[in-house]
């Protein structure tokens, strides 16, 4: 049974064993508008929690996607390079960015659950 958690920078993480799948939230894609380009990390890259993992661009904005947990990149969603629109269409599913092999699962627990994130987003308005 996997669980999804959220960061204040609007990333989501799904943890399966020690594999974390990471993407941006529905709210984030809505704020960005039409995604036109995604820059993915190299496989094998080690990223620290809070540091840049990927880049996502709309016509008028470019945003960093930060790693919500530390780990090593083991897989990237290379279909996004050809069809970045997937991020808009299915941010929480087919629009995932990368999978990390997580070093410290404790970091996962510090992130928000769905209810807390929804409340956090509401507070932004």
């Amino acid at each position: 049974m996997s669980e999804v958690r959220y960061s204040q920078e609007h990333e989501w993480v799904k943890l399966d064993g020690d594999t974390a799948t990471i993407g941006i939230t529905h709210y984030a894609q809505e704020q960005l508008g039409d995604v036109v380009f995604v820059e993915l990390p190299e496989i094998g890259k080690k990223v620290e929690k809070g540091k840049e993992l990927a880049m996502v661009e709309s016509v008028k904005a470019a945003s960093e996607v930060y790693a919500p947990v530390s780990g090593e990149v083991i897989e990237v969603n290379s279909t996004l390079t050809e069809t970045p629109a997937t991020v808009n269409e299915d941010a929480l599913g087919k629009g995932w960015f990368a999978k990390l092999k997580v070093a410290d699962k404790g970091q996962f627990a510090t992130l928000m659950d769905e209810a807390a994130y929804n409340k956090f987003v509401e507070g932004l308005h």
């Binding site: 661009e57 709309s58 016509v59 008028k60 904005a61 470019a62």
Partner: peptide, 12 residues
């Protein structure tokens, strides 16, 4: 492809 440029990406 304006996201490469200074008016959007600023210091990057």
């Amino acid at each position: 492809l304006s996201t490469r440029e200074q008016h959007i990406r600023r210091e990057k």
